[in-house]
Amino acid sequence: MITLLENVLERADGNYVSPEDLQLLDKALSSWKARKAAYNALQEKEPDIISAAVTMMKNGDRFESKPMDSLGVDRCQRDMTLGLRCCALAMLLQDEEMLKDRVLYWQQNIFRAMQLNYQGYKFLWQAVKSQLPGEQAAFFSPYMKLAHEMMAAE
């Protein structure tokens, strides 16, 4: 929404807001209550979501040969919590660009420097789907998908 508002302001620049931009704003505002409810549900379920995602990651085939130690689990929980909260804010504000700018580019650079193909968002998405009702989880889908695609890219 922040990016949307910035774009609308830039395009208007001394003129009235166009009918197309007004429709975009109406659409964003019409889903506010439902997105806010999904955001609040996610916040309430965050410990369960993070726990489920870390468990799925630890039990996945990626760590069969070398299980994660406690430091790895702590870092994984920290990274997943940050990612989940940023995806939640991006969903609430309907702002993929903010998600990219605030966390994904930064995370992407770190994981590339470490030569890791990070799969955490895949597990987060599975955990979100298991912990939230389908309608609420669906709001998160584009943001989790974007995060997973950016982090898993080679």
Rank of each mutant, 00 (worst) to 15 (best):
I2V: 13
L4A: 05
L5V: 14
V8W: 10
L9N: 12
E10W: 08
E10A: 14
E10R: 10
A12I: 03
G14I: 07
N15P: 02
E20W: 03
D21V: 07
Q23R: 09
D26N: 04
K27T: 09
K27W: 02
A28F: 02
A28N: 11
A28Q: 11
S30N: 05
S31R: 10
W32C: 02
W32V: 08
W32P: 01
R35P: 02
R35H: 03
A37N: 01
A38W: 01
N40M: 06
E44D: 00
E46Y: 00
P47T: 03
P47E: 05
I50S: 02
S51L: 00
S51V: 00
A52W: 01
T55I: 02
T55F: 04
M57D: 02
G60L: 05
G60T: 12
D61L: 12
D61R: 13
R62D: 15
R62N: 13
F63E: 11
F63Y: 15
S65R: 14
P67C: 12
D69G: 15
G72D: 15
V73W: 01
V73H: 03
Q77V: 05
R78A: 14
D79K: 13
T81R: 15
T81H: 13
L82H: 09
G83A: 12
R85N: 12
R85S: 09
A88V: 01
M91H: 06
M91E: 03
D95L: 13
D95C: 13
D95M: 10
D95N: 08
D95P: 10
E96K: 13
L99A: 01
L99Q: 05
D101M: 04
R102F: 02
R102A: 06
V103D: 05
V103I: 14
V103T: 08
L104Q: 07
Y105T: 14
Y105C: 09
W106P: 00
Q108T: 06
F111K: 10
F111R: 08
F111W: 11
R112C: 06
R112Y: 15
M114R: 08
M114N: 11
L116C: 10
Q119E: 13
Q119T: 08
G120H: 09
Y121S: 02
K122M: 11
F123K: 02
F123T: 01
F123A: 03
L124R: 11
Q126R: 15
Q126C: 04
V128Y: 02
K129A: 07
S130P: 09
Q136F: 04
Q136C: 01
A137K: 00
A137N: 05
F139N: 03
F140C: 05
F140H: 04
F140D: 04
Y143H: 06
M144T: 01
A147R: 05
H148I: 06
E149L: 11
M151P: 06
A152K: 14
A152L: 11
A152Q: 12
E154W: 06
